[in-house]
Design a protein around this nucleic acid. Structure first.
Length: 475
RNA sequence: GGUCCCGUCGUCUAGUGGUCUAGGACAUUUGGUUCUCAUCCAAAAGAUCGCGGGUUCGACUCCCGCCGGGAUCACCA
Protein backbone atom coordinates (compact mmCIF):
# COMPACT_ATOMS: atom_id res chain seq x y z
CA UNK A 1 0.00 0.00 0.00
CA UNK A 2 2.94 2.24 0.57
CA UNK A 3 3.37 2.60 -3.15
CA UNK A 4 -0.25 3.41 -3.98
CA UNK A 5 -1.44 6.93 -3.65
CA UNK A 6 -4.49 6.82 -1.41
CA UNK A 7 -7.69 8.37 -2.66
CA UNK A 8 -11.00 7.61 -0.97
CA UNK A 9 -14.47 8.78 -1.69
CA UNK A 10 -17.83 9.07 -0.10
CA UNK A 11 -20.57 8.76 -2.64
CA UNK A 12 -23.94 9.66 -1.19
CA UNK A 13 -27.10 9.58 -3.20
CA UNK A 14 -29.23 12.66 -2.69
CA UNK A 15 -32.36 10.64 -2.06
CA UNK A 16 -32.47 11.97 1.46
CA UNK A 17 -30.20 13.37 4.12
CA UNK A 18 -27.64 10.76 5.12
CA UNK A 19 -28.22 9.54 8.66
CA UNK A 20 -25.49 9.40 11.23
CA UNK A 21 -24.58 5.83 10.31
CA UNK A 22 -23.78 6.85 6.76
CA UNK A 23 -21.74 9.72 8.08
CA UNK A 24 -19.61 7.37 10.14
CA UNK A 25 -18.56 5.70 6.90
CA UNK A 26 -17.64 9.13 5.57
CA UNK A 27 -15.52 9.75 8.67
CA UNK A 28 -13.64 6.50 8.13
CA UNK A 29 -13.10 7.34 4.47
CA UNK A 30 -11.74 10.71 5.44
CA UNK A 31 -9.48 9.25 8.11
CA UNK A 32 -8.14 6.61 5.76
CA UNK A 33 -7.28 9.14 3.08
CA UNK A 34 -5.65 11.58 5.48
CA UNK A 35 -3.70 8.93 7.32
CA UNK A 36 -1.79 8.27 4.11
CA UNK A 37 -1.69 11.86 3.00
CA UNK A 38 -4.19 11.20 0.24
CA UNK A 39 -7.35 12.82 -1.00
CA UNK A 40 -10.89 12.56 0.23
CA UNK A 41 -13.44 12.98 -2.53
CA UNK A 42 -17.16 13.62 -2.48
CA UNK A 43 -19.12 12.37 -5.44
CA UNK A 44 -22.85 12.79 -5.83
CA UNK A 45 -24.54 9.64 -7.06
CA UNK A 46 -27.81 10.97 -8.34
CA UNK A 47 -28.62 8.25 -10.82
CA UNK A 48 -31.95 7.58 -9.17
CA UNK A 49 -33.74 10.61 -10.55
CA UNK A 50 -37.13 9.44 -9.32
CA UNK A 51 -36.26 9.63 -5.67
CA UNK A 52 -34.25 12.83 -5.57
CA UNK A 53 -34.92 14.92 -2.53
CA UNK A 54 -34.53 18.66 -2.95
CA UNK A 55 -31.85 20.28 -0.80
CA UNK A 56 -30.31 16.90 0.01
CA UNK A 57 -27.06 17.84 -1.70
CA UNK A 58 -26.69 21.03 0.28
CA UNK A 59 -27.32 19.17 3.48
CA UNK A 60 -24.67 16.64 2.62
CA UNK A 61 -22.20 19.50 2.26
CA UNK A 62 -23.38 21.00 5.51
CA UNK A 63 -22.77 17.76 7.36
CA UNK A 64 -19.22 17.51 6.11
CA UNK A 65 -18.52 21.16 6.77
CA UNK A 66 -19.91 20.90 10.27
CA UNK A 67 -17.76 17.91 11.12
CA UNK A 68 -14.69 19.34 9.47
CA UNK A 69 -14.40 16.54 6.93
CA UNK A 70 -12.69 18.63 4.32
CA UNK A 71 -13.12 17.50 0.74
CA UNK A 72 -10.23 17.69 -1.65
CA UNK A 73 -12.45 17.24 -4.66
CA UNK A 74 -16.19 17.59 -5.00
CA UNK A 75 -18.81 19.09 -7.34
CA UNK A 76 -18.25 22.58 -5.92
CA UNK A 77 -14.49 22.85 -5.62
CA UNK A 78 -14.00 20.62 -8.64
CA UNK A 79 -10.87 18.62 -9.27
CA UNK A 80 -8.92 16.93 -12.03
CA UNK A 81 -11.38 14.07 -12.52
CA UNK A 82 -14.70 15.85 -12.68
CA UNK A 83 -17.49 16.29 -13.09
CA UNK A 84 -18.30 14.85 -9.67
CA UNK A 85 -22.02 14.52 -10.23
CA UNK A 86 -23.02 11.34 -11.98
CA UNK A 87 -25.85 12.74 -14.06
CA UNK A 88 -23.28 15.05 -15.64
CA UNK A 89 -21.31 12.03 -16.78
CA UNK A 90 -24.02 10.12 -18.61
CA UNK A 91 -22.20 9.83 -21.96
CA UNK A 92 -19.24 8.29 -20.20
CA UNK A 93 -21.30 5.48 -18.73
CA UNK A 94 -23.14 4.92 -21.98
CA UNK A 95 -19.88 4.59 -23.82
CA UNK A 96 -18.53 2.06 -21.35
CA UNK A 97 -21.79 0.11 -21.28
CA UNK A 98 -21.57 -0.29 -25.02
CA UNK A 99 -17.99 -1.33 -24.73
CA UNK A 100 -19.05 -4.04 -22.28
CA UNK A 101 -21.66 -5.31 -24.71
CA UNK A 102 -19.13 -5.38 -27.52
CA UNK A 103 -16.66 -7.39 -25.50
CA UNK A 104 -19.38 -9.84 -24.46
CA UNK A 105 -19.44 -8.86 -20.77
CA UNK A 106 -22.92 -7.40 -20.98
CA UNK A 107 -26.02 -7.78 -23.10
CA UNK A 108 -29.18 -6.03 -24.19
CA UNK A 109 -32.33 -7.03 -22.40
CA UNK A 110 -35.75 -6.23 -23.76
CA UNK A 111 -37.81 -7.78 -21.02
CA UNK A 112 -40.85 -5.79 -20.06
CA UNK A 113 -41.60 -4.72 -16.52
CA UNK A 114 -44.59 -7.03 -16.56
CA UNK A 115 -42.47 -10.01 -17.47
CA UNK A 116 -40.02 -9.15 -14.72
CA UNK A 117 -42.80 -8.72 -12.22
CA UNK A 118 -44.14 -12.12 -13.14
CA UNK A 119 -40.85 -13.73 -12.22
CA UNK A 120 -41.37 -12.54 -8.68
CA UNK A 121 -44.95 -13.60 -8.49
CA UNK A 122 -44.28 -16.92 -6.86
CA UNK A 123 -40.84 -16.27 -5.48
CA UNK A 124 -39.96 -12.98 -3.88
CA UNK A 125 -36.28 -13.89 -4.13
CA UNK A 126 -36.36 -14.92 -7.76
CA UNK A 127 -33.41 -13.83 -9.85
CA UNK A 128 -33.61 -12.61 -13.39
CA UNK A 129 -34.02 -15.69 -15.56
CA UNK A 130 -31.50 -14.47 -18.11
CA UNK A 131 -34.15 -14.57 -20.78
CA UNK A 132 -32.30 -12.17 -23.08
CA UNK A 133 -28.80 -13.34 -22.28
CA UNK A 134 -28.49 -15.52 -25.33
CA UNK A 135 -30.40 -13.59 -27.93
CA UNK A 136 -28.74 -13.90 -31.32
CA UNK A 137 -27.10 -10.82 -32.82
CA UNK A 138 -29.83 -10.73 -35.43
CA UNK A 139 -32.57 -10.81 -32.83
CA UNK A 140 -30.91 -8.02 -30.92
CA UNK A 141 -30.46 -5.95 -34.03
CA UNK A 142 -34.08 -6.43 -35.05
CA UNK A 143 -35.31 -5.35 -31.62
CA UNK A 144 -33.00 -2.37 -31.57
CA UNK A 145 -34.06 -1.31 -35.05
CA UNK A 146 -37.69 -1.55 -34.09
CA UNK A 147 -36.99 0.96 -31.35
CA UNK A 148 -37.88 -1.42 -28.53
CA UNK A 149 -36.90 -0.11 -25.11
CA UNK A 150 -33.98 -1.94 -23.56
CA UNK A 151 -31.61 -2.11 -20.66
CA UNK A 152 -28.06 -3.39 -20.59
CA UNK A 153 -27.33 -6.15 -18.10
CA UNK A 154 -24.06 -7.59 -16.90
CA UNK A 155 -23.23 -11.03 -18.25
CA UNK A 156 -21.91 -12.49 -15.05
CA UNK A 157 -20.26 -15.93 -15.01
CA UNK A 158 -22.87 -18.48 -14.04
CA UNK A 159 -20.52 -20.59 -11.98
CA UNK A 160 -17.43 -20.23 -9.87
CA UNK A 161 -16.60 -17.85 -7.07
CA UNK A 162 -15.42 -14.31 -6.80
CA UNK A 163 -12.84 -13.95 -4.08
CA UNK A 164 -10.97 -10.97 -2.78
CA UNK A 165 -9.24 -9.76 0.31
CA UNK A 166 -11.36 -7.21 2.09
CA UNK A 167 -9.50 -4.80 4.33
CA UNK A 168 -11.91 -5.22 7.19
CA UNK A 169 -13.75 -8.44 6.40
CA UNK A 170 -10.68 -10.47 5.52
CA UNK A 171 -10.75 -13.08 2.80
CA UNK A 172 -14.14 -13.27 1.14
CA UNK A 173 -15.49 -15.70 -1.40
CA UNK A 174 -18.91 -15.31 -2.94
CA UNK A 175 -20.52 -17.71 -5.40
CA UNK A 176 -21.21 -16.03 -8.72
CA UNK A 177 -24.40 -18.00 -9.10
CA UNK A 178 -25.81 -15.99 -6.21
CA UNK A 179 -25.54 -12.81 -8.17
CA UNK A 180 -28.02 -11.61 -10.67
CA UNK A 181 -27.35 -10.31 -14.14
CA UNK A 182 -27.81 -6.84 -12.73
CA UNK A 183 -29.01 -3.98 -14.84
CA UNK A 184 -26.11 -1.69 -15.71
CA UNK A 185 -27.82 0.85 -17.90
CA UNK A 186 -31.48 1.63 -17.43
CA UNK A 187 -34.07 2.18 -20.15
CA UNK A 188 -33.74 5.92 -19.67
CA UNK A 189 -30.06 5.80 -20.48
CA UNK A 190 -28.96 6.43 -16.91
CA UNK A 191 -26.62 3.88 -15.35
CA UNK A 192 -27.33 2.03 -12.14
CA UNK A 193 -25.00 2.22 -9.18
CA UNK A 194 -23.12 -0.87 -10.29
CA UNK A 195 -21.88 0.55 -13.55
CA UNK A 196 -21.40 4.08 -12.31
CA UNK A 197 -19.27 3.24 -9.27
CA UNK A 198 -16.94 1.06 -11.22
CA UNK A 199 -16.44 3.55 -14.01
CA UNK A 200 -16.08 6.51 -11.68
CA UNK A 201 -13.87 4.83 -9.13
CA UNK A 202 -11.53 3.89 -11.92
CA UNK A 203 -11.61 7.21 -13.74
CA UNK A 204 -11.24 9.12 -10.49
CA UNK A 205 -8.34 6.92 -9.44
CA UNK A 206 -9.95 5.82 -6.22
CA UNK A 207 -7.50 3.56 -4.39
CA UNK A 208 -9.70 2.37 -1.55
CA UNK A 209 -13.41 1.77 -1.61
CA UNK A 210 -14.49 1.93 2.00
CA UNK A 211 -18.26 1.56 2.18
CA UNK A 212 -21.01 -0.08 4.19
CA UNK A 213 -21.43 -3.87 4.25
CA UNK A 214 -24.73 -3.53 2.47
CA UNK A 215 -22.61 -3.48 -0.70
CA UNK A 216 -20.81 -6.70 0.05
CA UNK A 217 -23.12 -9.00 -1.89
CA UNK A 218 -22.92 -7.02 -5.10
CA UNK A 219 -19.16 -6.77 -5.06
CA UNK A 220 -18.74 -9.71 -7.47
CA UNK A 221 -20.54 -7.65 -10.10
CA UNK A 222 -18.19 -4.73 -9.55
CA UNK A 223 -15.10 -6.89 -9.59
CA UNK A 224 -16.28 -8.61 -12.75
CA UNK A 225 -16.64 -5.22 -14.40
CA UNK A 226 -13.17 -4.12 -13.36
CA UNK A 227 -11.77 -7.31 -14.73
CA UNK A 228 -13.67 -7.02 -18.01
CA UNK A 229 -12.36 -3.53 -18.56
CA UNK A 230 -8.89 -4.67 -17.66
CA UNK A 231 -8.75 -2.22 -14.80
CA UNK A 232 -7.01 -2.73 -11.52
CA UNK A 233 -9.75 -2.86 -8.87
CA UNK A 234 -9.43 -0.65 -5.80
CA UNK A 235 -8.79 -2.11 -2.37
CA UNK A 236 -12.11 -2.92 -0.77
CA UNK A 237 -13.15 -2.32 2.81
CA UNK A 238 -16.69 -3.05 3.91
CA UNK A 239 -17.47 -1.51 7.24
CA UNK A 240 -20.20 -2.74 9.57
CA UNK A 241 -23.49 -1.02 10.12
CA UNK A 242 -24.81 1.08 12.91
CA UNK A 243 -27.76 -0.52 14.64
CA UNK A 244 -30.56 1.10 16.59
CA UNK A 245 -31.13 0.33 20.28
CA UNK A 246 -33.42 -2.49 19.16
CA UNK A 247 -30.54 -3.98 17.19
CA UNK A 248 -32.17 -3.31 13.86
CA UNK A 249 -30.33 -1.48 11.12
CA UNK A 250 -30.27 2.21 11.71
CA UNK A 251 -32.61 3.74 9.20
CA UNK A 252 -34.73 6.78 8.70
CA UNK A 253 -37.80 4.68 9.27
CA UNK A 254 -36.63 3.98 12.77
CA UNK A 255 -35.96 7.59 13.44
CA UNK A 256 -32.25 7.59 12.66
CA UNK A 257 -31.22 11.19 12.66
CA UNK A 258 -28.77 13.02 10.52
CA UNK A 259 -25.76 14.81 11.90
CA UNK A 260 -27.55 18.06 11.16
CA UNK A 261 -30.27 17.12 13.60
CA UNK A 262 -27.73 16.26 16.27
CA UNK A 263 -26.13 19.62 15.64
CA UNK A 264 -29.50 21.26 16.17
CA UNK A 265 -29.86 19.28 19.39
CA UNK A 266 -26.70 20.87 20.70
CA UNK A 267 -24.05 18.27 19.97
CA UNK A 268 -20.58 19.45 19.06
CA UNK A 269 -18.83 18.24 15.92
CA UNK A 270 -15.87 17.17 18.04
CA UNK A 271 -18.08 14.94 20.15
CA UNK A 272 -19.88 13.47 17.16
CA UNK A 273 -16.63 12.64 15.40
CA UNK A 274 -15.26 11.14 18.58
CA UNK A 275 -18.36 9.11 19.19
CA UNK A 276 -18.51 7.79 15.65
CA UNK A 277 -14.84 6.95 15.79
CA UNK A 278 -15.27 4.80 18.88
CA UNK A 279 -18.23 2.97 17.38
CA UNK A 280 -16.46 0.13 15.72
CA UNK A 281 -12.97 1.12 16.64
CA UNK A 282 -11.01 0.71 19.81
CA UNK A 283 -8.43 3.02 21.27
CA UNK A 284 -7.41 2.93 24.92
CA UNK A 285 -10.59 3.01 26.96
CA UNK A 286 -12.77 4.39 24.16
CA UNK A 287 -13.53 7.55 26.07
CA UNK A 288 -10.60 9.87 25.44
CA UNK A 289 -11.24 13.20 23.80
CA UNK A 290 -9.66 13.09 20.38
CA UNK A 291 -9.39 15.75 17.71
CA UNK A 292 -9.75 14.89 14.05
CA UNK A 293 -5.99 15.13 13.65
CA UNK A 294 -5.40 12.74 16.51
CA UNK A 295 -7.90 10.33 15.02
CA UNK A 296 -6.08 10.45 11.71
CA UNK A 297 -2.97 9.36 13.48
CA UNK A 298 -4.62 6.63 15.50
CA UNK A 299 -6.92 5.29 12.82
CA UNK A 300 -6.00 1.92 11.42
CA UNK A 301 -8.19 0.50 8.68
CA UNK A 302 -7.12 -3.00 9.62
CA UNK A 303 -8.49 -2.68 13.11
CA UNK A 304 -12.04 -1.70 12.27
CA UNK A 305 -14.45 -4.04 14.03
CA UNK A 306 -16.37 -6.52 11.97
CA UNK A 307 -19.41 -6.56 14.11
CA UNK A 308 -22.26 -4.14 13.83
CA UNK A 309 -22.35 -1.51 16.53
CA UNK A 310 -25.34 -0.30 18.43
CA UNK A 311 -25.83 3.44 18.55
CA UNK A 312 -25.81 4.39 22.23
CA UNK A 313 -26.77 7.98 22.87
CA UNK A 314 -25.42 7.84 26.46
CA UNK A 315 -21.89 7.67 25.17
CA UNK A 316 -22.51 10.59 22.84
CA UNK A 317 -23.89 12.56 25.77
CA UNK A 318 -20.82 11.81 27.83
CA UNK A 319 -18.42 12.79 25.10
CA UNK A 320 -20.43 15.94 24.41
CA UNK A 321 -20.41 17.03 28.04
CA UNK A 322 -16.68 16.42 28.23
CA UNK A 323 -16.02 18.48 25.12
CA UNK A 324 -18.18 21.27 26.47
CA UNK A 325 -16.10 21.37 29.63
CA UNK A 326 -12.91 21.36 27.64
CA UNK A 327 -13.77 24.21 25.29
CA UNK A 328 -13.14 27.73 26.48
CA UNK A 329 -16.14 29.90 27.21
CA UNK A 330 -15.58 32.37 24.41
CA UNK A 331 -15.56 29.52 21.93
CA UNK A 332 -18.69 28.08 23.51
CA UNK A 333 -20.41 31.43 23.32
CA UNK A 334 -19.87 31.50 19.59
CA UNK A 335 -21.23 28.00 19.19
CA UNK A 336 -24.17 28.90 21.41
CA UNK A 337 -25.28 31.73 19.17
CA UNK A 338 -28.00 29.83 17.42
CA UNK A 339 -29.31 28.54 20.71
CA UNK A 340 -29.66 31.69 22.75
CA UNK A 341 -32.34 34.37 22.47
CA UNK A 342 -31.62 37.48 20.47
CA UNK A 343 -31.79 39.70 23.57
CA UNK A 344 -28.86 37.92 25.16
CA UNK A 345 -26.59 38.27 22.15
CA UNK A 346 -25.57 41.76 23.08
CA UNK A 347 -24.55 40.81 26.58
CA UNK A 348 -21.59 38.77 25.61
CA UNK A 349 -19.52 39.36 28.74
CA UNK A 350 -22.37 38.37 30.97
CA UNK A 351 -23.16 35.31 28.88
CA UNK A 352 -19.57 34.20 28.99
CA UNK A 353 -19.38 34.51 32.74
CA UNK A 354 -22.49 32.38 32.96
CA UNK A 355 -21.04 29.84 30.57
CA UNK A 356 -17.98 29.70 32.83
CA UNK A 357 -20.00 28.40 35.70
CA UNK A 358 -22.69 26.56 33.74
CA UNK A 359 -20.64 24.50 31.36
CA UNK A 360 -19.79 21.78 33.81
CA UNK A 361 -23.45 20.97 34.14
CA UNK A 362 -24.29 20.99 30.45
CA UNK A 363 -24.65 17.88 28.34
CA UNK A 364 -25.64 19.64 25.16
CA UNK A 365 -25.68 23.24 23.98
CA UNK A 366 -29.43 23.17 24.46
CA UNK A 367 -28.97 22.93 28.22
CA UNK A 368 -27.59 26.43 28.42
CA UNK A 369 -30.72 28.53 28.05
CA UNK A 370 -32.80 26.82 30.74
CA UNK A 371 -29.90 27.01 33.14
CA UNK A 372 -29.23 30.67 32.46
CA UNK A 373 -32.56 32.34 31.88
CA UNK A 374 -33.00 33.48 35.46
CA UNK A 375 -29.90 35.61 35.00
CA UNK A 376 -31.59 37.52 32.22
CA UNK A 377 -35.12 37.76 33.48
CA UNK A 378 -36.61 37.94 36.95
CA UNK A 379 -37.87 34.53 38.00
CA UNK A 380 -41.17 33.78 39.67
CA UNK A 381 -40.31 33.16 43.28
CA UNK A 382 -42.72 31.43 45.55
CA UNK A 383 -42.29 32.53 49.16
CA UNK A 384 -43.39 29.11 50.33
CA UNK A 385 -40.56 27.49 48.44
CA UNK A 386 -38.07 29.79 50.15
CA UNK A 387 -39.49 28.90 53.54
CA UNK A 388 -39.40 25.24 52.66
CA UNK A 389 -35.69 25.53 52.09
CA UNK A 390 -34.96 27.56 55.18
CA UNK A 391 -37.14 25.23 57.28
CA UNK A 392 -37.49 28.08 59.70
CA UNK A 393 -40.40 30.40 60.43
CA UNK A 394 -41.08 33.35 58.20
CA UNK A 395 -39.83 35.68 60.96
CA UNK A 396 -36.54 33.88 61.32
CA UNK A 397 -36.07 33.59 57.59
CA UNK A 398 -36.82 37.27 57.15
CA UNK A 399 -34.21 38.06 59.73
CA UNK A 400 -31.63 36.01 57.84
CA UNK A 401 -32.55 37.77 54.61
CA UNK A 402 -32.03 41.11 56.30
CA UNK A 403 -28.55 40.04 57.32
CA UNK A 404 -27.86 38.79 53.83
CA UNK A 405 -28.99 41.97 52.12
CA UNK A 406 -26.98 44.15 54.41
CA UNK A 407 -23.94 42.02 53.77
CA UNK A 408 -24.31 42.43 50.05
CA UNK A 409 -25.00 46.09 50.38
CA UNK A 410 -22.01 46.81 52.57
CA UNK A 411 -19.35 44.47 51.31
CA UNK A 412 -16.30 46.19 49.93
CA UNK A 413 -15.21 43.24 47.87
CA UNK A 414 -18.05 41.91 45.73
CA UNK A 415 -16.39 38.69 44.60
CA UNK A 416 -17.52 35.09 45.03
CA UNK A 417 -14.57 34.30 47.27
CA UNK A 418 -15.12 37.18 49.61
CA UNK A 419 -18.88 36.77 49.70
CA UNK A 420 -18.39 33.15 50.55
CA UNK A 421 -16.20 34.10 53.43
CA UNK A 422 -18.45 36.79 54.83
CA UNK A 423 -21.62 34.78 54.38
CA UNK A 424 -20.14 31.78 56.08
CA UNK A 425 -19.39 33.84 59.18
CA UNK A 426 -22.87 35.34 59.16
CA UNK A 427 -24.51 32.00 58.62
CA UNK A 428 -22.86 30.56 61.68
CA UNK A 429 -24.51 33.19 63.86
CA UNK A 430 -27.86 32.89 62.17
CA UNK A 431 -29.10 29.67 63.65
CA UNK A 432 -29.56 28.27 60.17
CA UNK A 433 -27.49 25.44 58.79
CA UNK A 434 -25.37 26.23 55.74
CA UNK A 435 -27.81 24.33 53.60
CA UNK A 436 -30.85 26.14 54.97
CA UNK A 437 -29.20 29.51 54.76
CA UNK A 438 -27.83 29.23 51.27
CA UNK A 439 -30.65 27.25 49.73
CA UNK A 440 -33.24 29.77 50.80
CA UNK A 441 -31.19 32.55 49.21
CA UNK A 442 -30.66 30.46 46.11
CA UNK A 443 -34.36 29.95 45.61
CA UNK A 444 -34.96 33.61 46.27
CA UNK A 445 -32.69 34.81 43.50
CA UNK A 446 -33.25 32.07 40.95
CA UNK A 447 -36.54 30.38 41.66
CA UNK A 448 -34.71 27.07 41.49
CA UNK A 449 -33.14 24.59 43.84
CA UNK A 450 -30.29 23.75 41.51
CA UNK A 451 -27.96 26.45 40.27
CA UNK A 452 -24.25 27.13 40.09
CA UNK A 453 -22.62 28.18 43.38
CA UNK A 454 -24.65 30.89 45.12
CA UNK A 455 -21.96 33.53 45.33
CA UNK A 456 -21.07 33.22 41.68
CA UNK A 457 -24.72 33.88 40.98
CA UNK A 458 -24.75 37.00 43.14
CA UNK A 459 -21.77 38.40 41.33
CA UNK A 460 -23.20 37.74 37.89
CA UNK A 461 -26.52 39.29 38.86
CA UNK A 462 -24.74 42.26 40.36
CA UNK A 463 -25.31 43.97 43.66
CA UNK A 464 -28.38 45.85 42.66
CA UNK A 465 -30.23 42.99 41.02
CA UNK A 466 -29.33 40.59 43.83
CA UNK A 467 -30.73 42.98 46.40
CA UNK A 468 -33.83 43.60 44.37
CA UNK A 469 -34.59 39.90 44.17
CA UNK A 470 -33.87 39.22 47.83
CA UNK A 471 -36.02 42.13 48.90
CA UNK A 472 -38.96 41.11 46.80
CA UNK A 473 -39.52 37.81 48.57
CA UNK A 474 -41.14 39.08 51.72
CA UNK A 475 -43.30 42.01 50.71
C1' G B 1 -35.59 -19.56 1.74
C1' G B 2 -30.37 -19.17 -0.83
C1' U B 3 -25.70 -16.77 0.03
C1' C B 4 -22.25 -14.00 3.07
C1' C B 5 -20.79 -11.78 7.74
C1' C B 6 -21.01 -11.46 12.99
C1' G B 7 -21.74 -13.45 18.39
C1' U B 8 -16.95 -11.17 25.56
C1' C B 9 -20.89 -7.11 31.31
C1' G B 10 -27.16 -3.07 29.19
C1' U B 11 -23.61 -0.38 25.48
C1' C B 12 -18.48 0.52 23.05
C1' U B 13 -14.60 -2.70 23.66
C1' A B 14 -9.36 -5.31 25.61
C1' G B 15 -8.11 -10.14 24.93
C1' U B 16 -4.72 -14.10 19.14
C1' G B 17 -3.60 -21.53 24.05
C1' G B 18 -1.71 -20.97 30.32
C1' U B 19 -0.50 -13.96 33.21
C1' C B 20 -8.48 -14.33 32.56
C1' U B 21 -11.38 -16.69 39.60
C1' A B 22 -11.99 -12.17 31.87
C1' G B 23 -9.42 -5.81 31.98
C1' G B 24 -11.11 -0.63 30.73
C1' A B 25 -14.82 3.05 29.40
C1' C B 26 -20.13 4.83 29.15
C1' A B 27 -24.60 3.96 31.74
C1' U B 28 -26.40 2.21 36.83
C1' U B 29 -25.89 2.12 42.42
C1' U B 30 -23.28 3.69 46.83
C1' G B 31 -19.78 6.74 49.48
C1' G B 32 -16.48 11.19 49.74
C1' U B 33 -15.78 16.56 48.45
C1' U B 34 -19.65 20.51 48.60
C1' C B 35 -24.44 25.98 49.97
C1' U B 36 -27.98 22.90 45.82
C1' C B 37 -27.32 20.60 41.13
C1' A B 38 -23.37 19.22 38.43
C1' U B 39 -18.18 18.37 38.32
C1' C B 40 -14.33 15.68 40.52
C1' C B 41 -12.59 11.37 43.45
C1' A B 42 -13.43 6.43 45.37
C1' A B 43 -16.05 1.95 45.48
C1' A B 44 -19.87 -1.65 44.21
C1' A B 45 -22.82 -4.26 41.12
C1' G B 46 -22.86 -6.14 36.30
C1' A B 47 -20.18 -11.37 31.34
C1' U B 48 -21.63 -19.45 33.29
C1' C B 49 -16.73 -15.27 27.10
C1' G B 50 -24.32 -17.53 22.39
C1' C B 51 -24.95 -23.20 23.09
C1' G B 52 -23.08 -28.29 22.40
C1' G B 53 -19.30 -31.30 20.99
C1' G B 54 -14.29 -32.08 19.95
C1' U B 55 -8.47 -31.03 19.58
C1' U B 56 -5.04 -30.14 23.77
C1' C B 57 -1.83 -31.34 29.93
C1' G B 58 -4.72 -26.73 29.39
C1' A B 59 -9.58 -22.89 25.15
C1' C B 60 -12.70 -16.76 25.45
C1' U B 61 -8.71 -17.91 22.24
C1' C B 62 -8.14 -23.73 17.29
C1' C B 63 -11.91 -27.28 14.60
C1' C B 64 -17.06 -29.03 13.75
C1' G B 65 -22.29 -28.67 14.55
C1' C B 66 -26.29 -25.90 16.31
C1' C B 67 -28.69 -21.50 17.79
C1' G B 68 -29.16 -16.26 17.59
C1' G B 69 -28.45 -11.49 15.14
C1' G B 70 -27.33 -8.76 10.73
C1' A B 71 -26.68 -7.94 5.40
C1' U B 72 -28.27 -9.13 0.55
C1' C B 73 -31.39 -11.39 -3.42
C1' A B 74 -35.11 -3.87 -7.71
C1' C B 75 -34.53 -0.56 -14.50
C1' C B 76 -32.74 2.03 -5.27
C1' A B 77 -28.52 3.47 -3.87
Amino acid sequence: MADTHVRTRIAPSPTGVPHIGNTRTALFDYLLAKKYGGEFILRIEDTDQDRLVPKAVEKIYQIHDFLGLKRDEDPVVGGPYGPYVQTERLEIYQKYALELVNMGAAYYCFCSEERLAKLHENDQYAKYDRHCRNLSPDEVKAKLDSGAPYVIRVKLPETGFTTWHDLVQGKLSLPNAECDDKVLLKTNGIPTYHLAVVVDDHLMKISHVLRGVEWLMSTPVHLFLFESFGWEPPILAHVPLLLGPDKSKLSKRHGAKSVLEYAADGYLPEAINNFLFYLGFSYKDNSELLTLDQMIEIFDEKRIQRQNAIFDIQKLNYLNSQWIKKLDSEDLFNRLKTFIPQEWQGEKAKAISIIDIAKERMFTLKDFVPSAEYFFSTPEVDKQLVLEQSTHTEEETKKWFAIATSLIENTKDFTPENLHEEFTIAQKDSGLSPREAFMSLRVAISGRTATPPLFDCFVILGKEESLKRLNSVFV
